[in-house]
Simulated assay, not measured.
Amino acid sequence: MHAPPDQLGPDTFRHDLVLYSSAEELAAVAVPFLRAGLEAGAAAVITTSDPSAAILRDALGDDERVHVLPRGEVYRDRTPAAITAFRRLAERVTGHGHTQLRVVGETWFGRTPREWLEWQRYEAVLNEAMRSWPTWGLCAYDLRQLPDELVDSGLRTHPHLVDAGGRRPNPHFTEPADYLRALPVPDEPLEATEPLLQVDDAKDFAGLRHTVGARLAQLHGSRDALEDLHLAIDEMSANAVRHGGPPVQLRLWASADRVVCRISDGGTGMDDPFAGYGPAHGDDLSHGGMGLWLARQLCDHVDVVDGPDGLSVRLTTLLR
Score class of each variant (00 low, 15 high):
Arg57Thr: 09
Arg121Val: 12
Leu226Met: 12
Glu115Leu: 08
Leu318Gly: 05
Asp77Trp: 06
Gly310Ile: 03
Thr157Ala: 10
Glu128Lys: 07
Leu60Gln: 11
Arg215Ser: 01
Arg209Val: 11
Leu138Ile: 13
Glu188Gln: 14
Leu250Thr: 10
Gly165Ile: 00
Leu298Glu: 02
Lys203Met: 07
Glu191Met: 15
Met130Tyr: 01
Arg87Phe: 01
Ala27Trp: 06
Pro273Trp: 02
Thr174Trp: 03
Asn170Gln: 08
Glu25Tyr: 11
His230Asp: 13
His281Leu: 07
Asp16Ile: 00
Asp6Leu: 15
Asp228Val: 00
Gln7Trp: 10
Leu34Asp: 04
Ser312Arg: 03
Ala225Cys: 06
Leu19Ala: 05
Leu315Val: 06
Asn127Pro: 03
Arg258Thr: 06
Val45Cys: 14
Ser132Phe: 06
Gly278Ile: 01
Glu149Asp: 15
Gly269Gln: 08
Leu183Cys: 09
Leu146Pro: 03
Gly110Thr: 06
Asp283Gln: 13
Val93Cys: 06
Gly276Met: 02
Arg92Asp: 10
Met270Tyr: 03
Asp200Lys: 12
Asp62Met: 00
Asp272Asn: 15
Ala238Tyr: 01
Ala206Asp: 14
Ala23Met: 11
Arg296Gly: 02
Ile83Glu: 01
Gly72Ser: 15
Val199Ser: 09
Gly288Trp: 07
Met130Asp: 01
Pro273Phe: 04
Thr47Asn: 03
Arg209Glu: 09
Arg168Ala: 10
Asp257Arg: 13
Ala90Cys: 09
Asp142His: 10
Gln7His: 14
Glu115Ser: 13
Leu298Ala: 04
Glu227Thr: 13
Glu235Met: 11
Pro4Asp: 09
Ser22Trp: 11
Leu8Cys: 10
Gly291Ile: 01
Ala44Tyr: 04
Arg131Asn: 00
Pro279Cys: 12
Gly244Cys: 10
Asp63Glu: 13
Gly266Val: 05
Ser255Leu: 01
Arg181Val: 07
Arg121Ser: 10
Arg87Pro: 01
Ala177His: 09
Glu227His: 15
Val260Leu: 15
Val151Thr: 14
Leu294Asn: 08
Gly282Lys: 07
Leu138Gln: 08
Leu197Ile: 14
Cys139Ser: 08
Ser22Phe: 10
His96Gln: 14
